[in-house]
């Protein structure tokens, strides 16, 4: 799947650049994109190390297990595969809390830690479990208590009420998440638990 997306993006881009005569921009884009990724990783490196460090302290102290137990009615239902697995549940909770509190720098490292823990338990090397797909889908949505970045942008543009759109944002993000999660649950029911291959036709 990712094979086709990546291939398609680059091929369509090259064809388009030929037609529109933007070949110069295209060559700059290839190298610029690669360089941008390195710059992003460098800026991510600090927060990645710091947050995985704090995560380890929270895990060894038993804080994440406590968090997992608190949220287990919710987490058990969404991720039934990991019922009772306090390590994975703890990592999922840490990521979702970071997202909720708007700590974007923390959410990615914590989310990757959760994905890796789920992958360790999975018998399949290249196919995600249902829980992994649902977890990624949670992270493609944006559930945030206080969207401070957006408020700052609005304030910079002279808004009289930077936070005036809070109810709209809450309803919209929650609605979008519910739609995506329902879709996942429907697909989970349709497809048997992951075997290498069965999703090829649908994805």
């Amino acid at each position: 799947m990712i094979n086709y997306i990546w291939f398609g993006m680059i091929c369509a881009g090259v064809v388009c650049a030929c037609v529109t005569g933007r070949l110069g921009e295209l060559s700059a884009a290839v190298m610029g994109g690669a360089q941008g990724a390195v710059e992003l990783s460098l800026s991510l490196l600090g927060s990645m190390c710091a947050w995985l460090g704090f995560l380890r302290i929270a895990e060894e102290g038993g804080l994440t297990a406590l968090l997992a137990r608190g949220f287990s009615p919710f987490i058990d239902r969404l991720f039934p595969e990991y019922r009772g697995d306090r390590e994975i549940q703890g990592k999922i909770c840490m990521n979702l809390s970071a997202n909720f509190l708007g700590l974007g720098n923390a959410a990615t490292p914590l989310g990757i830690a959760a994905m890796r823990a789920m992958q360790e338990r999975s018998p399949h090397k290249d196919t995600p479990t249902k829980g992994m797909v649902l977890f990624v889908v949670f992270n493609t949505a944006s559930i945030q208590l206080l969207p401070v970045n957006m408020a700052a942008m609005r304030e910079a543009c002279g808004s009289a009420q930077p936070f005036g759109i809070l109810p709209e944002i809450w309803l919209t993000s929650l609605g979008a998440l519910v739609v995506a999660v329902l879709f996942c649950k429907m697909m989970e029911r349709r497809a048997p638990p992951p075997r290498p291959g069965p999703y090829n036709g649908t994805a």
Binding site: D126, F183, Y199
Partner: peptide, 24 residues
């Protein structure tokens, strides 16, 4: 997220994510 743990098949994550964006 999938790249960080070597997952190559994306299952139904792309349609789910995009459906969420359309709903948004």
């Amino acid at each position: 997220y999938f790249g960080s743990c070597g997952i190559k098949k994306l299952s139904y994550s792309v349609p789910a994510g995009l459906l969420g964006d359309a709903a948004a």
